[in-house]
Design a protein around this nucleic acid. Sequence first.
DNA 1: ATGAAAGCGCTAACAT
DNA 2: ATGTTAGCGCTTTCAT
Lengths: 335, 335
Amino acid sequence: MKKRILISDIAKDLGISVTTVSFILNDKAKEKRISDGLTKRVLDHVKKVGYKPNQLAKSLRTGKTKILGLLVEDISNPFFSNIAKLIEGKAYASGYHIIYCSMDNDETKSKELIQMFYDRQIDGFIITPSEGLDETITQLQQNNVSLILFDRYLANVETNYVITDNFKGAYDATDHLIGQGFKRVGFVSLYSDQTQMRDRLEGYMKGIDKYKKQAFIKKVQQDAPEEERVREIDEFIEDNRLDAVVFATNYLAIDGLKAVKIYQRKLPAMVAFDDHTLFKLYEPSITVVSQPIAEIADELITALLGQIQGKNKKLKQVVLPCELKVRESSLISAN
Amino acid sequence: MKKRILISDIAKDLGISVTTVSFILNDKAKEKRISDGLTKRVLDHVKKVGYKPNQLAKSLRTGKTKILGLLVEDISNPFFSNIAKLIEGKAYASGYHIIYCSMDNDETKSKELIQMFYDRQIDGFIITPSEGLDETITQLQQNNVSLILFDRYLANVETNYVITDNFKGAYDATDHLIGQGFKRVGFVSLYSDQTQMRDRLEGYMKGIDKYKKQAFIKKVQQDAPEEERVREIDEFIEDNRLDAVVFATNYLAIDGLKAVKIYQRKLPAMVAFDDHTLFKLYEPSITVVSQPIAEIADELITALLGQIQGKNKKLKQVVLPCELKVRESSLISAN
DNA sequence: ATGAAAGCGCTAACAT
DNA sequence: ATGTTAGCGCTTTCAT
């Protein structure tokens, strides 16, 4: 970490021009037919003196920053922080850095953040879009920005995305519960038109319809105070005498568990979406529809880097399977 | 998001020089005694055409990137992801972006990551240092890099840091347990010489000594397979017939709960360090020593930005209080 | 096969 | 009070 060495220092040390050094450093030695001997000498010297090109200068010149933007709903939700950690690792391995933020499903904040990241000239975006972003995302695409969505997508904009089969996940959960013999199976979701929420609701409906059961659907306001959300969920379960509930997200399920604790209820049978440490250790352990985090991260980075490097021209729209992890909370014997 | 506008376009549009525009844009209008009228005209025009300075060019020129590096132990640990979210918010509010990574308490990885971030010329570092980083951190300081540590510090390097009173937190936890009447109170920690671990152990010892009790101390290897850690913790509790345990981190406590589940044990009385959704909802709810996340984030950003802007010259070493949140798991009546 | 030099967009010293 | 211009460190065209 001594005084910064410049490419011109390297050139001077070796008595050659900066051009040659630059070519060699950018893997153009072969192409420019620079002798192997010289190439090796330069590379050795660069390593010896620890020369590191100034990324800023490089970026200014090339227009590439080697920075990716990760814009998630909420980095403090373990589902997203776990994915973030995986993405980060893969990005670093490819020489990319990640700048990130939480958009909190807030349209205005989301737009501002996307604009900020765009102004930073990041090389690519990984986004969990909140609603109302159709135009913003379209504009990014028109400006030839590499981007990929995940967790949800925009129904009216053709983009790359990686999602999971939310419909089947919710269907499986519902089918599993009713198949066990539960009679009154409810569904707790959000006021949200996001695709993952819509698909989960539809999956639940299909499960309900398969058995010709009545649907019980409760939506809560994501930004309502916790106390209120918890109370509403409790009322929903009690008023309808539900014996089983499918929760559309992990934090809704957590709200449900809070309701049980606060109002001292008997826990209904339940399935949550997205795994969580809590669900594994809760007594009874909570059955979940688990999304394949590692595969999601993998597909995202692979697709985005491919796009940045101009490889995959065609749309990449990946739907990964969810897995129903049956634990104790959904078994009728345990009730 | 149209074709990029340059500062020279603004100058041309208004028939003035780029210098004047640059001065005005960098709040030097007053200092350079540029007329209010012109200043306003420029600002209005800039806003109207949506001109945004190219950060790269600006950074190359000034050497400032307006990027902060957040290097935590593990972004998927809710303690860190919650702090990360708060820091992120505050940083954006001041025009800074955050790039982050998880160092996983791995010395080699930590050094590489710090070097990568340094090469990126970020304006400041926020770091939870793993062991063996004394020299690396010292070098950063010698290179006049702004930095602040948190969660732990380096005993042999004088740096800014924000930590909590781990000693008192562990002491309070131990005192609370023994004060309730528990007889055999153990402590589960890591093989680690990090300051927060050392302080927590000492706090436990002081609590034990106060009552002239025997200490039971178990350290586990952080990178051991989960199964092994869980088994060791179980053996520790069983072999020593402990009726209460203080866990030095949230994930150790989670391992403890896993042990209870897997080996079907009666839960001993317990206190965990750092709060977690699980601890609030577990049955019984788990008593924790909680660190003031919002204050930590606040102090970190304030101190770091102050340092970057050349304000606080002297060392900023903040010790925040922990809070013992007594819940059910540590009450003797509940046992 | 290698070198000279322009230029990425901005800031700020210097000139007026 | 405002303009001219060098230069931040790199890549790449053009010339040899």
